[in-house]
């Protein structure tokens, strides 16, 4: 017989093991980023390297004097993008979930279809740059790709259909509430757990995005953190594979290799590691509040 208490203990132990397995490679990355480049090559990756060096971080800061600005750009786009995305997503999902809505099925298909087919970067690029002129503006980091994701819409739609009884809406209608009011006053607040989830998903996709920047941003002032880091990394790769081109050999010898990549990973993820517990408090509250009490 498995009692609650035992199960709780089992959960703790099992997850603790899983966490250790998960965290080990991440620790390797962190240690590698502060290991001396030569030591890394000579002795391999280790949790306890014999010689430390901050060279990789120094290199990145020197390369991107604008790294702090880039953090600003990333934080701004992540916040604005996520908020707009939450609006659009829940607004699109709510009618889909209403059984009385004639086009709910058609709309589901319309949304789902976008998950399957995409026309590639060229037409998207033409539309966003020639019709909407977003090139080299902050909008380029917000508008393309991430505002409405089919997965998120469907998650919210399912949440509504499974968790919100029709009676609730009917009651509101009888009280004379307009659809818009029903959505804002009742449906949006009700979606808290799932909104928290998709906020996290969307926020992370904005945080991690560098493709929008790569295509639509030339102006270094609008580089996001990930784009900046990606550019540094891509350049190292490109130099490596074109060693016979121009001054590539010379350029390459000036960059520390492996440890820089590791430092790049740390710089990209670190702020999330720091901020996450705070966000989690608010975001996952919705999720965990309703959760099973042991």
């Amino acid at each position: 017989m498995l009692t609650s208490k035992k199960f709780n203990r089992f959960a703790t132990i099992f997850l603790a093991i899983l966490v250790c397995l998960t965290v080990f490679p991440i620790l390797l990355i962190v240690m590698a980023s502060i290991t001396d480049e030569n030591t890394l090559l000579r002795e391999g990756y280790s949790l306890f390297p014999s010689k430390f060096s901050a060279g990789a971080y120094y290199y990145i800061i020197q390369q991107g004097a604008m790294i702090f600005r880039a953090y600003g750009v990333t934080i701004f786009t992540t916040l604005i993008g996520t908020v707009i995305s939450l609006m659009l997503t829940t607004m699109l999902a709510y009618p889909m979930s209403r059984k009385s809505f004639k086009y709910s099925n058609a709309l589901s298909f319309f949304v789902f279809f976008t998950m399957l087919f995409n026309g590639g970067i060229v037409p998207s690029y033409i539309i966003w740059t020639r019709l909407f002129h977003i090139k080299n503006t902050i909008f380029a980091l917000i508008l393309p790709n991430y505002l409405v994701s089919a997965v998120n819409v469907i998650l919210v739609k399912n949440y509504y259909s499974n968790n919100v009884p029709d009676a609730l809406i009917e009651a509101a209608q009888i009280d004379g509430a307009k659809e818009m009011q029903i959505f804002w006053k009742i449906m949006f607040p009700l979606a808290k757990p799932v909104v928290a989830t998709i906020a996290l998903f969307t926020g992370l996709s904005y945080w991690n995005d560098w493709t929008n920047g790569l295509y639509y941003i030339d102006d270094a002032k609008l580089y996001s953190v990930q784009l900046l880091l990606m550019k540094i990394m891509n350049n190292v790769d490109m130099l490596k594979s074109n060693i016979s081109l121009g001054g590539a050999g010379e350029a390459l010898a000036q960059v520390p290799g492996t440890s820089v990549r590791m430092a790049i990973a740390v710089i990209g993820v670190l702020p999330i590691m720091v901020i996450y517990p705070f966000i989690q408090k608010y975001l996952i509250k919705g999720v965990v509040v309703g959760a099973v009490k042991g």
């Binding site: 609006m87 659009l88 997503t89 607004m91 699109l92 709510y94 009618p95 889909m96 209403r98 809505f101 086009y103 709309l107 319309f110 949304v111 976008t114 505002l147 409405v148 819409v153 659809e179 818009m180 959505f183």
Partner: peptide, 12 residues
Amino acid sequence: LFLIALPGIVYL
């Protein structure tokens, strides 16, 4: 209902 969904539809 359609109006509520409209911004999302336009975006897609």
